[in-house]
């Protein structure tokens, strides 16, 4: 358990040490909300548009999407720290330690997920004044659901990074995963409006269920597409699966890569 808590602590310590990163992580979703959200919300002011977005204004529709998207991308990108640890040698310090490997990698993933969830909280606090229709009661369950998703993607990012030799390799995964999964999640436009083949991809996208769950809590049941049990169940399975994957990847890790 010591290894878990200390690796958790290390992630937190490193996060707050990097001031620029803290600012960038809050700025990025704010840019989406303001310049993307506010702009398009003026375009979608007709009553017709309200019907498309489930009876709410565009900014209210978009807000849970931006929240989920932030958590997803930031937790996945957290895997980069594993690559830095490889390049600066710190990983060897962990590999040669007697602590259980699974505990130290889990500490790291839970640390990342917690930090990302805190960012999600900040994003939502900034969102409430902009999108008045959001339900404050949805805050806590959304954060919990978001934490589960952050665990899943921090786990995936970490497992991938353990297999990567270079930053470039990981960046390629960021490129091919983050944007498409964001567009295919219903975060920015409703899944119902997508062509059939795109809808099929959206159903296979885990981020879809996080967006859906967050929308359920923050906007209302009518704005959601799936049952809450499905959102929670899928994300729980995914989190467990990716945590296990990361633990296995790290247990086998030697200097031979």
């Amino acid at each position: 358990m010591q290894a878990f808590t200390v690796m958790f602590y290390r992630q937190v310590l490193r996060f707050f040490r990097a001031r620029a990163r803290v600012v960038a992580m809050i700025l990025n979703p704010l840019i989406w909300l303001l310049f993307f959200g506010l702009g398009w919300s003026r375009v979608f002011q007709s009553p017709m548009a309200r019907v498309i977005f489930g009876g709410v204004d565009y900014l209210t529709f978009l807000a849970p999407g931006i929240f989920a998207m932030t958590l997803f991308s930031q937790s996945f990108i957290g895997g980069v720290s594993v690559i830095w640890d490889k390049q600066f040698g710190f990983l060897k310090e962990i590999l040669v330690a007697p602590a259980p490997r699974a505990a130290s990698i889990a500490g790291r993933i839970f640390g990342d997920a917690t930090l990302v969830t805190l960012q999600g909280l900040v994003v939502l606090m900034l969102t409430f004044p902009l999108a008045h229709a959001l339900k404050p009661a949805g805050l806590l369950p959304s954060l919990l659901l978001g934490f589960l998703m952050a665990l899943a993607f921090a786990g995936l990012g970490t497992a991938l990074a353990l297999k990567m030799e270079s930053l470039e390799g990981f960046q390629m995964f960021m490129m091919i995963l983050i944007l498409p999964l964001t567009f295919l999640s219903g975060a920015i436009y409703p899944i119902g409006a997508m062509p059939g083949w795109m809808q099929a991809l959206a159903y296979a996208n885990p981020l879809t269920y996080a967006v859906d769950g967050a929308r359920h809590y923050l906007v209302g049941a009518s704005a959601a597409r799936f049952a809450l049990a499905l959102d929670w169940g899928l994300l729980l399975l995914l989190a467990l699966g990716f945590l296990l994957l990361a633990a296995l990847a790290f247990r086998r890790a030697t200097l031979e890569g």
Binding site: Q2, A3, T5, V6, M7, Y9, R10, L13, R14, R17, A18, D85, F88, G89, F90, L91, K92, E93, I94, A97, P98, A99, S104
Partner: peptide, 25 residues
């Protein structure tokens, strides 16, 4: 002590030692 450094560059010397100690129980 490895041939190449294996310290956490972002953290202080004391923090590096503290984390090491905790990892070793």
């Amino acid at each position: 002590v490895f041939q190449d450094p294996s310290l956490d560059r972002e953290l202080t010397a004391r923090e590096n030692l503290y984390i090491h100690g905790r990892i070793y129980g």
